[in-house]
Structure formats: structure tokens, C-alpha cells
């Protein structure tokens, strides 16, 4: 009987009442283990670049300015908040915050830049063992991501041997 269905449907709506939340007038707290914007703690970071090597969106760039100074730049513009960086970080220097209201009129506001003083040999890779063979931390050597153009310099077999990785920068492939 269709009329009965309509009555039932009306009752469902009336019982439900008003369900809309008064957001954003009242902020809605996120659950404790929410994956929001990652926060980088410069005091803990040892500059291993594991986060950069495992970021699926390639949002974390690492560049060695000289033997002692390594810059780690998080762009934040197409970060998917997957939290892989926080997973692989051996020093727990990255926390996924509960902050998701990141709208801004200037995208650089979302970035974070860490200038790290590297005191020991970067080539020995002494820091720790990677968590698994799949989470490659690639500790050795220098990094020259293209910070000026905000590009990750890929260590990729997609390029032919003789092709330049980035047209205007010359970099040796792995």
C-alpha cells in the first residue's frame, strides 16, 4: 500500500528531527587519532630524509646546501595527509595533527621549512635500520631536490640513461 509507505516515510523524517550540525559556528572536534596536517619538529629531526623518500605525493624536498646544512622543505599543497612520513620517521619528529581547516589564500602558508645542522658523516648511514625492505630510506649521499621549482628529483627508471632528469639541472642518476 503506497499511501502507508508515504506515511511511514513522513514519520521517519519527523522522528529524525534536525540533524544538521552548527558547524562552523561551533567547531567540531576531530577524534584523537585523526590524520590532519603533519607537523615537523625540527628539534627531533635528524635529517635522514626517510619521509621524503616515502612520501607518495612527493611533497617533501631535501637539499644539501653544504656538508653541514641540510634543508627539508614540506610543501603541503598536494599533501594527502596519508601519514606515511610519520610512520617511517625513526625519531617521531613528525606528528599528524588534528588540524584540517587549512584553507588559505596563500598556498605557501601550508609549507614548513627545516634547516638542519648535520654534524656527522652523511655517507655512513649510521642512524638506524629501515623498518622494512619496502620502506626504503636511502640514507646515503647528498640530495638535490629542485627547491626553486618545488620539484622532487626522482630517482626513477622512467628516464632514459642519457636524458636529463630536470632539463635545467644536471644530476647523476642512481
Amino acid at each position: 500500500m503506497s499511501i502507508l509507505s508515504k506515511v511511514k516515510e513522513a514519520v521517519i523524517c519527523l522522528r529524525a528531527g534536525r540533524v544538521t550540525l552548527p558547524y562552523p559556528a561551533q567547531p567540531r572536534p576531530t577524534p584523537p587519532n585523526f590524520r590532519g596536517r603533519p607537523i615537523f619538529d625540527a628539534s627531533r629531526c635528524i635529517g635522514c630524509a626517510g619521509c621524503a623518500n616515502n612520501c607518495p605525493a612527493r611533497e617533501i624536498l631535501v637539499v644539501d646546501l653544504c656538508q653541514e646544512v641540510r634543508v627539508l622543505q614540506y610543501l603541503g599543497r598536494r599533501c594527502t595527509y596519508c601519514g606515511r612520513c610519520a610512520d617511517v620517521c625513526p625519531e617521531k619528529a613528525i606528528t599528524m595533527s588534528r588540524d584540517f581547516e587549512t584553507a588559505t589564500d596563500h598556498v605557501a602558508d601550508l609549507g614548513q621549512r627545516l634547516e638542519l645542522f648535520m654534524s656527522t658523516c652523511q655517507r655512513c648511514g649510521r642512524c638506524f635500520t629501515p623498518p622494512s625492505a619496502l620502506d626504503q630510506l636511502k640514507l646515503k649521499g647528498y640530495r638535490f631536490d629542485d627547491v626553486a621549482h618545488e620539484r622532487w628529483v626522482f630517482h626513477s627508471t622512467a628516464y632514459g640513461r642519457d636524458e636529463p632528469v630536470v632539463e635545467d639541472v644536471e644530476i647523476e642518476l642512481d
Partner: peptide, 25 residues
């Protein structure tokens, strides 16, 4: 409207478990 009202708690519990409503990672 009613389907979406009933659906919303599912999204919230997914958010609590995985850290996100969708794209659970």
C-alpha cells in the same frame, strides 16, 4: 536526505578507526 543521515555515523566511526572519513590509508 534520510540515507545520508543514516550514513553519517558510518563515516564518523571510520574516521575514528583510521583517522579519516574516506581514504582510510
Amino acid at each position: 536526505m534520510q540515507c545520508f543521515r543514516i550514513r553519517e555515523p558510518v563515516m564518523w566511526i571510520a574516521e575514528k578507526i583510521t583517522g579519516n572519513r574516506k581514504t582510510y590509508g
